[in-house]
Amino acid sequence: MIVAERKPLAEIIDMVKDHKKILVLACRGCVTVCSAGGEREADILASLIRLGLKKEGKQAEVATGSLVRQCDKEYIDGIDQWKGQYDAIVSTACGVGVNFIANLRDGDHVYPALNTTFFGGSAEQGVWREQCAGCGNCVLHLTGGLCPVARCAKSLFNGPCGGSVKGSCEINSDVPCVWQNIYDRMGTLDRQKELSVSQPIRDWSVGGHGGPRKQVRDDLTV
């Protein structure tokens, strides 16, 4: 899922301080699962915005709503149900949702409530870890399913850097050295020999270094 976290309240309140009718718009997709921008979090944020504005002596109506997702045109059209009831939208979706609203709603002010952080999973309750970098050229078949792009601090492709200590990354002992994990796992799978094959220099143009990416599926376009 896409993992995100709420921006500092002062930043959000500064964005909306001149608006009188604010819609805090939740997304029932990834950000609901990671407890950053679902309906519950939108209700909390709406209350905090009301309190923050009131403290600054400003009056505003702050309502909440939610969409199934904010990354599809069909769902963005659902904003029409609040037509005339807001002069600004604070989206608790990831950055994709904010962009989609901006793309599709010419006259609407839209602000991000979250900082979108990474593609990850819930390692345990309340803890999320980055697992994928969306690099456009997956190598997980070579590394036992563990990603050296997202999970190695240096995104190395040919083994560890040498800075790890007792299986932890040198940048932070809380970060496992994924190359240690890859080596151990490939051993468990009896595939360690495959790691001696050098990986060639990588083409990062598909990893975002070639500009914004676009994907077209002719079989799905009508």
């Binding site: 519950r40 909390i44 209350s47 905090l48």
Partner: peptide
């Protein structure tokens, strides 16, 4: 008790 309940008390 939800967080919103506590915040509502302040509101």
């Amino acid at each position: 008790i939800e967080i919103t309940t506590l915040l509502q008390a302040f509101e």
